[in-house]
Design a protein around this nucleic acid. Sequence first.
DNA 1: GTCTATAAACAGATAGAC
DNA 2: GTCTATCTGTTTATAGAC
Lengths: 227, 227
Amino acid sequence: MNDQDPQKIGGTGASEEESTKNALLQTAIALFSKNGFAATSTREIAKVAKANIGSISYYFGSKEGLRRACARSIAGLIASTASRALPDVDHLEPDEAAKMLENALGGVIRLMLTHHNSRNMAAFLLQEVSEQGEVLDEIYTHLLEPLHKKLCRLWSVATGDPAESQQTIMRVFSVIGQALYFRLGEPLVARRLGWEKIGKKEAEQISEMVLQNMQDMIVAARIRNQN
Amino acid sequence: MNDQDPQKIGGTGASEEESTKNALLQTAIALFSKNGFAATSTREIAKVAKANIGSISYYFGSKEGLRRACARSIAGLIASTASRALPDVDHLEPDEAAKMLENALGGVIRLMLTHHNSRNMAAFLLQEVSEQGEVLDEIYTHLLEPLHKKLCRLWSVATGDPAESQQTIMRVFSVIGQALYFRLGEPLVARRLGWEKIGKKEAEQISEMVLQNMQDMIVAARIRNQN
DNA sequence: GTCTATAAACAGATAGAC
DNA sequence: GTCTATCTGTTTATAGAC
């Protein structure tokens, strides 16, 4: 209806035999994200992906197996993207660390609010978290924890706060939360602001504001640490 | 057949004829919130509520009707609670407005993170927003918009920012977003902080930190407005 | 108002042809 | 690898007894 073709994501040359598998995966991510896992039937996925219903069992074993594959695919892509955006965190000056935090967060916000696949992925992960299924463990261990620790180290260098203190951990979560909310509450946010949808221009405004909030928080933390 | 008296939610005083209806409503909110609308069968609701399956049709017409009733009940309760917490917003000094924002936000965070019904309600509303169903319109018009406008006026008095500017609207959303994220991402947040769950003590810590962030944002906004 | 039985549609999974 | 037909169980909704 509205989502465009579920294309290969970061995908380079998936072999011809796997194109069906990949189409199923991308379609499933899109539909699960949009309508939820339980509300999406395997028949619908197969139909949209232009595959037959049997192929889901063939490639993924079951509907639950398809869900796991979706989660792994997304987590892996985000992790690799993040490790490229935050290559080396050590030996930085406070202002460099702050700048790196800004770049990373700004990039994530713009990507999450505008890029179609990213929107789907964020929605998918959120549902997995709220349903607390089996994949949650994997998401936490392989994706969230290493990424969050890296951000906390950056925050520590930028502000002088200790990197693994409860305060720092919560503070970093609250910055992430600001960004995520604009994706999650998009229908409400857009309407309240008189926007038809959140496009490139609107994402830029949101990004600027969240980054300014973070900057204000960093400045305040530095002042607190001067005492 | 509308849902006034949303006060009786954990309800002791519901009239005898309506106790079945109320049990169905509360059970539905809990199960829809926990497992999602599509993943929850009417059979399960009836069983948990100790009612028979036919009673859902009898009282609410259909499963979709039950969902609408849940949304209305929650929106009504939140709206009435909020209007009690924020009775009069006019003729305030900046520091009074800031204090009122703090009290309201702190109250919401503590309630949302600890009180069982509030947790369910927040989860339910979030799902409705992300699914963009019919009730979304009602939630926006009767709940979010009036409440958000009130908060923006408070923010305006506290900081000097114009009340209905895009900046102010986004800023208030970002504060709400911080609070909501800790509810939404609770499984991840708790694990990262080494907490088993978010209880009263933990909610207090989160509340303090978010309120400090808001205070920092208000101070920074005041400074910007001095130019 | 409450409850049971049942209809009609739909779900996920699979066997087997090609 | 792909596709169809079909099995088995579950879903919502409803008709009708009490």
